[in-house]
Nucleic acid binder design. Sequence first.
DNA 1: TTTCGTGCAAACCCTTTGCATTTGC
DNA 2: GCAAATGCAAAGGGTTTGCACGAAA
Lengths: 140, 140
Amino acid sequence: MTKATGIASRLSKAGYRLTPQRIMILDAIEGASGHISAEEIYQKIKALYPGLNISTVYRTMELLKETGMVTETDMGDGRVRFHSVGHEHHHHLVCSRCGAVIDLDEAVLAPLTTLLTEKFGFSADLKHLAIFGHCKDCDR
Amino acid sequence: MTKATGIASRLSKAGYRLTPQRIMILDAIEGASGHISAEEIYQKIKALYPGLNISTVYRTMELLKETGMVTETDMGDGRVRFHSVGHEHHHHLVCSRCGAVIDLDEAVLAPLTTLLTEKFGFSADLKHLAIFGHCKDCDR
DNA sequence: TTTCGTGCAAACCCTTTGCATTTGC
DNA sequence: GCAAATGCAAAGGGTTTGCACGAAA
């Protein structure tokens, strides 16, 4: 039913089949404002298409990571979040006390990235880093 | 049998009982060169004291985190690592491809920490950060 | 003695996997 | 038609929890 969107066609070009499940999952990630967990993707789609199984979500995420269409972030709560690569990169300051999340522009970490490359030949993948600490309200 | 060391006595001062299990766990963490997982602590102690249960390790780690004697790092492999706060802080560059871990001095991140404080009033807890990316050997 | 900590076993949560069936190409 | 993808159900790995017994203070 759904027409292959740009990002979906990238999938088929990469040699993967375009199944309705994959298209819906892709849509869900695209539509998400930011990070989204496997469970959230699953629930979102299940409302429209109850047949979906969560293992399909996980398998699709695996594939999208391999294709470089999605990245993974560990926000420290025991479940991984996914993020479409198309979206602008940003980072998060996560308050360990109240759970507040402050968005952080990519530019803030640019100097660090440069330094790591120059000094260690290490290309940091800081697409969606989560930095833990205390926000100003929770700072004793 | 073991005498309460400095760090162990901090525990009792905080109102917690000094059990042999806790002392052994404390020793294991102190003795560890760097990060150590719950399972590793457990195995290390089990050799001498087979009665130990891993749930005790987890409960003790919880308590040590609350007391601020230990910090937690997620190295991205699905299990959390612990680190004695007494040890000098350092960071890790983790290669997502080959798994290599490069140690990074705390000073490297100092400018970033300062910036986050000044700009966002956020006090980052960068005691043991893991930065993912590719090391120079794996960089295509 | 009283409260706190431990061992044990089972539960939990997120994620992965084997297998038979279905489906895209 | 055939290989690849899905659904289902069960397993897996790390971590947590309820409960009765045992031990620190």
